[in-house]
């Protein structure tokens, strides 16, 4: 196809659907280019630049300190990609917890208005990567329409929580009308570092549903992603990285729950655990391990498809378990 024709088509598309311009232009230009290379009769159509998927800790994309990785294969025949994914270790968990601890006070210290702005920015970043996120879900085996729906839901949940940040106090705080000359009030406060075991599926909606409500309350999260294909998680962390969320507030590690949950449940800097999905004895062991430092533990059995059928995890019920309540008294007198 001649260049001029491409330009004309672009103009036509632009008038119809402005948001599609870039995608279409890219597609058309790529098509033209491949014809050119074919003409030179190269043995290989094009050497693609493969993406190295990494874990996301402290605002940086990192490999495991252990140097280990595991291989992912595309599930569809149309998806030949084979990639290596870092496999997080106990030490990665330990380091991430310290990173999270250092980031937490700063995050909690921001205004709820700012929390909302940043989570809305996250929704914007996800919206702009809708195609990529959906493509990743399709790669995992979903149909195009299932994938699109999940991405939309995930974005909408971010928007939901973005709007909740500065409502928490109105909904949960109280003035306490004590029987005496004192002014008393109770405010929700952040808990600290919360360890999250994200549901294995749905991979995107599960991440957003398990992580965002924890961050809403001013906590920092260390997330263990155990899904067989963490590439969706990785793409999502790229949304996080561009969302103005301070580094260290959400940290995502890939690996095996049997290996990573125990150090997290035992880590004394971790104040809460949010465990999604049925982990069997591992979950029970984590609850027991968590008692040593009196962690707040919440188990959500409703991972998996339940999230999709209920429009994801929305509501105070996902936020409140990871809040503290602080009661303050002061006398009223002259």
């Amino acid at each position: 196809m001649a260049r001029s024709k491409v330009v004309k088509r672009v103009a036509k598309i632009a008038s119809a659907e402005p948001s599609l311009i870039r995608v279409k232009v890219a597609a058309e230009v790529e098509g033209a280019a491949s014809k050119d290379s074919a003409r030179r009769e190269s043995p290989i159509e094009r050497v693609t630049v493969n993406k190295a998927y990494k874990m996301y800790v402290g605002g940086a994309f990192i490999r495991s300190e252990s140097g280990r990785s595991f291989r992912i294969k595309g599930v569809k025949s149309t998806d030949p990609e084979v990639v290596n994914i870092p496999r997080g270790s106990r030490k990665d968990v330990r380091d991430a917890v310290l990173v999270a601890k250092n980031a937490q006070a700063g995050w909690a210290g921001r205004t709820p208005y700012n929390h909302g702005q940043i989570l809305y920015r996250l929704a914007e970043m996800m919206e702009s990567r809708r195609t990529e996120l959906a493509m990743s879900l399709v790669r995992e085996g979903q149909s195009q329409s299932e994938a699109s729906r999940e991405v939309q839901l995930a974005i909408d949940i971010c928007v939901y929580y973005a709007g909740l940040c500065d409502k928490l106090s109105a909904l949960l705080a109280s003035h306490n009308p004590v029987a005496g000359p004192h002014f008393g009030f109770t405010l929700p406060e952040s808990l600290g570092v919360v360890g999250v075991v994200a549901p294995r599926a749905p991979s995107l909606l599960g991440l957003v549903s398990s992580i965002v409500p924890v961050a809403v309350g001013g906590n920092a999260a260390v997330v263990i992603v155990t899904s067989a294909d963490p590439r969706t998680a990785s793409i999502w962390t790229e949304c996080l990285a561009t969302s103005d969320l301070p580094g260290g507030v959400v940290n995502v590690i890939y690996g095996q729950v049997a290996e990573l949950l125990t150090p997290m449940a035992k880590h004394r800097e971790v104040s809460g655990l949010s465990i999604w999905g049925d982990l069997g004895d591992l979950g029970i062991q984590a609850e027991a391990d968590a008692t040593e430092s009196v962690k707040r533990v919440r188990r959500y059995a409703d991972g998996d498809r339940a999230l999709l059928s209920t429009d994801g995890a929305r509501g105070l019920g996902y936020v409140e378990p990871f809040l503290e309540f602080k009661t303050v008294w002061h006398p009223m007198g002259m």
Binding site: S174, N176, P177, V178, A179, G180, H182, G184, T186, S271, S293, V294, E324, F325, K326, T327, V328, W329, H330, P331
Partner: peptide, 24 residues
């Protein structure tokens, strides 16, 4: 701390939530 008493101490009331942070 779950309860902060400012310019007072050890005050309790049923309308006033009481309980701890951390290992309290």
């Amino acid at each position: 701390a779950g309860v902060v008493w400012a310019n007072t101490y050890n005050k309790f009331d049923p309308t006033s939530p009481f309980g701890g942070y951390k290992e309290s």
